[in-house]
Amino acid sequence: MFINSHTKLLGIIGMPLSHSLSPMMHNQALQNLKLDYAYIPLEFEEYNLSKAIDAIKVFNIRGVNVTIPYKEAVIPYLDELTDSAYNCKAVNLIINNNGYLKGYNTDGEGFMLGIKEHDIELKDNAVFIGAGGAARSIAYELAHEVSRIDFLDLDRQRAVELADFITNKTDCDSNGYLMLEELFVDLTLKADIIINCSPVGMYPKVDISPVSCIKHLAKETVLCDLIYNPLETKLLQMGKEHGLKVINGLPMFLYQGALSFEYMTGHSAPLKIMREVVTNQIK
């Protein structure tokens, strides 16, 4: 990569960023298309958030991805939000148009594209394990495809609040519950798709699962885990052993990144290259 005075800047803001694969993935994509951009990690403490947003304008950074813990905190500093970002109250991408900052949320759309990649036919019932920001973004998109969504979370109030949001914003019926094994069994007996949005099973704690048993699930049930490191979590291992179709978090990560890439550069993302970079790095 040759950087000069004309090179346009892109990046990711968050804390910490040492684990992020986004810089490697995006820079390889930029090199593949021979685009004069550089994508850099921008890590800072939360008390410097307003200065960081100013820096995006000062240095004319074309676009930045946003990750934990700033997806909600950046919103007051932005000039405009897409409908998805506004409704989900979370931003994972900021585009800078000559100092005018617009916030996007590509997580939900990225998840849906990943589902379509695997030829999943969405029908009636979805169950979420975890009711945090990722669950909110995905559920908002998924609610337009299914008739019912149930949320299970260790914080029952958070699950209830997310369910109320989905019920009020969409035509999808939704309820929230405390994360208990017996409730998980009851709610998933007829589930079409189960989505783990919790961090349970993520590297380095790869030997644990958010639930202890899935033998009650119908063979047609699709089991998803938003975790992509490891590529096969304990939960997905259990699913494969039970004969279920399983999907890890890699498709969502790739597609939300590809959508971000296109918004930032105006070019179609080289998805194959991006997939190879991430997969090789995890392996």
Rank of each mutant, 00 (worst) to 15 (best):
D225N: 07
L226S: 06
L235A: 03
E220S: 14
L226F: 06
L236V: 09
H242L: 13
I247D: 04
T221P: 04
L244P: 03
E241D: 14
V246L: 05
P251E: 07
P251S: 12
L226G: 09
P230E: 10
L235Y: 02
L244K: 00
G239W: 01
I247N: 07
L254Q: 12
H242A: 15
Q237T: 11
M238F: 12
V246M: 07
L250C: 15
P251W: 01
V222S: 08
G243H: 02
K240C: 11
V246H: 01
F253S: 11
V222A: 11
K234P: 03
H242G: 05
G249L: 06
L223M: 08
L231F: 12
L254M: 15
L223N: 03
M252R: 13
G243R: 07
K240D: 14
L231C: 06
K240R: 14
G239R: 02
L254K: 14
V222P: 05
D225K: 04
L236G: 12
E220G: 04
E220L: 07
E232Y: 03
G243I: 08
K240W: 07
P230D: 11
P230Q: 06
L244E: 03
E232W: 03
N229I: 11
C224P: 00
M238I: 13
E241H: 08
G239L: 04
K240H: 07
I227R: 06
D225W: 01
L254D: 13
I247A: 11
Y228F: 09
G243A: 07
T233Q: 08
Q237A: 10
E232L: 12
K234Y: 01
N248T: 04
M238K: 08
V222T: 14
D225T: 11
L231M: 12
T221Y: 10
L236N: 10
T221C: 15
L235G: 06
G239A: 05
E241I: 08
G243W: 02
E220A: 12
E232V: 14
Q237E: 15
Y228E: 00
C224R: 03
N248L: 03
L250M: 15
K245T: 13
Q237N: 13
E232Q: 15
L244S: 01
L236A: 10
V246N: 00
N229T: 11
I247G: 09
Q237I: 13
P251R: 09
M252Q: 09
L235Q: 00
P251N: 13
V246T: 15
L236E: 11
L231N: 03
M238C: 12
L226C: 06
I227S: 05
L226A: 04
I247M: 15
P251Q: 11
K234H: 10
I247W: 01
L223R: 00
M238S: 12
L254P: 15
K245G: 03
Q237D: 14
G239F: 02
L250P: 12
G249T: 04
I227C: 08
